[in-house]
Structure formats: C-alpha cells, structure tokens
C-alpha cells in the first residue's frame, strides 16, 4: 500500500525510531504483544479450567455449580466477551498513540446517522491493487 508510505512523515522528533517507517514495527509489535497475552488467557480458561482440570475444580461448589462445570458452561463465555472488549479498548489506545485511528467514523454506540460517503478514509482503495 504505497499511499501509507508516502504520507508517513519522517518523525520530527529524534527519539522516534530510525527511518520513516520505524513506527510501523513498533505499532505491530505492540499489537502482537497484546494479542499473545489475550490469546494465552483465551486458551487457559476454557481448556485449562473447563476441560483439563475440570474434575479437580468440580470438588468446589459455588451457588450450586461445581466450579469446573461452571467454567465450561458459563464462565468461559464471560471471559471471551471480556477479552474482546479489552482488545477493542487497547487497540483504540494504540491506534491513537500512533495516529492511525480512522476519521469520521460512527461512534461505537452505532449511530446510523453518519454520512456514508464521509466514513471512508480513502486508504482502502489504495490496498486493492
């Protein structure tokens, strides 16, 4: 996507990473680090607590639920939901930090009012080739 490169300014400051696109590596690294942490939790909760150690956890009962059974049929789903929410919020922060957030978007509350034409940032077409 040539367009992104053309517009990326050489960092005015000197503590920016070397080269005009050093920020990209930094951005991608932060993204990957976040992803790996969240995916680790994604794996441990359902498979660890809900499957591999279910018999041990079932010795504990809370509110009528054997704990392992609860993780398998309820808890995992709540954890998944939380993981995606954390990812969305953290990525919003990272996007802002690197100045790559999108303009004119509809707020997350989903207002349909925003004009259709104004919502594209124009970079999409650049990726088609």
């Amino acid at each position: 996507m040539a367009e992104t490169e053309d517009k990326s300014p050489g960092p005015p400051g000197d503590e920016g990473p070397p080269g005009g696109n050093g920020w990209r590596r930094e951005y991608w690294r932060k993204n990957l680090r976040l992803m790996v942490v969240l995916l680790a939790i994604w794996f441990v909760v359902p498979f660890g607590l809900g499957i591999f150690f279910v018999e041990q956890l079932n010795q504990i009962t809370i509110g009528g639920f054997p704990l392992g059974f609860w993780f398998a049929q309820q808890g995992s789903i709540y954890v998944f939901l939380l993981l995606i929410l954390v990812y969305c919020l953290m990525m919003d922060r990272i996007d802002k930090e690197f100045g790559v957030e999108e303009r004119d978007e509809a707020p997350a509350s989903g207002s349909a009012a925003a004009g259709d034409a104004a919502t594209e940032d124009g970079s999409k077409e650049g990726g088609d080739s």
């Binding site: 517009k7 990326s8 940032d121």
Partner: peptide, 17 residues
C-alpha cells in the same frame, strides 16, 4: 499485507516524538 495491518494512513507521529 503490510497495508492491511494499519487501520488508517498515519496522520501524526507516535506520541512523544
């Protein structure tokens, strides 16, 4: 592949620079 990794064209340098 590089292009799809960033949500939008960069408009500012990373914070702090």
């Amino acid at each position: 592949v590089e292009g799809i990794r960033y949500p939008a064209v960069q408009r500012r340098s990373p914070a702090g620079s």
